[in-house]
Simulated assay, not measured.
Amino acid sequence: MNTIKSGLTAGIMMLCAGLAHAQAFETSARAAYVYDQTTGTVLLAKDAATPLPPASMSKLMTIYMAFEAITQGRLSVDDILPVSTHAASFGGSSMFLDTTDRVSVEDLLRGVIVLSGNDASVVLAEALSPDGTEAGFGRLMTERARQLGMVNSVFVNASGWPAAGHRMSTEDLGILSSRLIADFPTFYPLFAETEFAFDGRVPSNSQNRNPILRMGIGADGLKTGHTQEAGYGLAGSAVQGDRRVIFVITGLDTAVARAEESERIVNWAFRQFAERDVATAGTRVATADVWMGAETSVGLTVAEDLQMLVPILHQGSVNGEVVFDGPVQAPITAGQQLGELIIALEDLPEKRVPLVAETDVPLGGFSARMRTAAMVLWGKYGFAPGADAGADANGA
């Protein structure tokens, strides 16, 4: 494995020259996760991998699976679903359904998203469950969560009703929120709706509980949660300019604290970080030796335009390292991933960028094989192949 300092490091340092260091954000939340979806940058992670009671925020997984079923044609927004005795038995936040109701999927989706209906969640779950039960749907939710990369989530029910073993991490909720936004752009605007007066039956229960939707900070989702065990939580998202920020907090003591902390996080994420162009697609950042190729080396380039989110007051250095297995075996195809550029900025997780071959390198002929044999002999017997070859062998 070759690890080298990238020539791009100097470029990044010049890019950030004159900026100073951003102060780390302190949150009173039990756990928190803040993610800049535009650049793929994690801005804050406090106990983010710890599985905790998610309360109604776990309804986001029920909604994801309902959206998925609709896009796959297994469910329609016009379908009418029955309300079972089990679904009608739930208290807490509710659409106040009873067993005489027959409800459209469209109304049920709004009932879950806007009204946080436990009953609506169960109606959808029973319709999509492999065995027709909420418990069966919970097992299906857990399986699908693993496929989405949510490794710290286990679902026992569809609503987040307190139950032993029903857990999600704030990081998993962040992953899920990001997937909802990216995978279902047609349905996502439902999360910004502030009111849903289902059937006019309970006017006092028609308002979306998400406090950031009315703050004028670009918020357009997603879901609140509260139980005595979990405290007050929120999976939220906001857009300002070209950037979207997703955040998840949990374990706050009051609804007021949840609202205040959410606004603080959104303001911090947008005001304390700025997007910077680092490199354009095709920029060569290193050279790798080639084994048995028509050429002795190949350039390693950035496959796509590279932007990076940096603290607006950053003055520290930025480290960049290129990592690849070398020498690289020919044949090589242009665009083939050969390594990674790892960029580290203080107070932010490292960013890993794929590096690809700049050009094709076909297998070499007889002369290439002889050259390779000579290189092997040089290495075996300690001969020096020359200063330039030595530099190439280190990937510089």
Rank of each mutant, 00 (worst) to 15 (best):
V103L: 03
M95Q: 08
T100K: 09
S94G: 00
G73F: 01
Q72L: 13
L75S: 02
A88Y: 10
E106L: 08
M95S: 11
E68G: 02
F96K: 13
G111T: 09
I113L: 13
R102H: 13
L115R: 14
F67P: 04
D79T: 01
T71M: 05
A66C: 10
V114W: 03
T100D: 13
T62F: 10
D101H: 09
T71F: 01
S116E: 03
G91K: 15
M95H: 06
S89N: 12
R74L: 12
Q72K: 15
A69V: 12
F96A: 12
L115A: 02
D79C: 01
T71K: 13
Y64Q: 04
M61I: 07
G92H: 14
V103P: 03
R102Q: 13
V105N: 01
A87N: 09
L109A: 04
N118T: 09
T71S: 14
H86Q: 11
G73V: 05
T100G: 08
V83W: 07
I113S: 08
D78P: 06
I70C: 01
S93P: 12
S104E: 05
R74G: 13
F90I: 10
S94E: 08
T85G: 04
I70G: 02
I113V: 15
T85L: 00
D98K: 11
V105A: 01
F96R: 13
V77T: 13
I63K: 06
A69I: 14
S104Q: 11
V103G: 04
R102V: 02
M95L: 15
S94W: 01
G92N: 12
L75N: 03
G111I: 07
P82T: 12
R110H: 09
S116R: 06
T85R: 09
D101L: 02
R102M: 07
V77I: 12
D107M: 05
T100R: 11
R74D: 14
S93I: 07
P82V: 05
F90S: 09
V77Q: 10
N118G: 08
R110Y: 07
T62V: 08
G111C: 08
R74A: 15
I70Q: 01
T99D: 05
F67E: 01
V103I: 11
S89K: 13
F67I: 04
H86C: 02
T85P: 00
E106H: 14
D98C: 14
I70L: 02
L108K: 11
A87C: 07
A69P: 13
R74T: 07
V105H: 03
G73H: 01
A69S: 15
Q72V: 03
F67S: 05
E106F: 09
F67V: 06
S94V: 02
T100Q: 11
F90P: 09
F67T: 05
D79M: 03
S76C: 00
F90Y: 15
E106M: 06
F96T: 06
V112F: 02
V83Q: 06
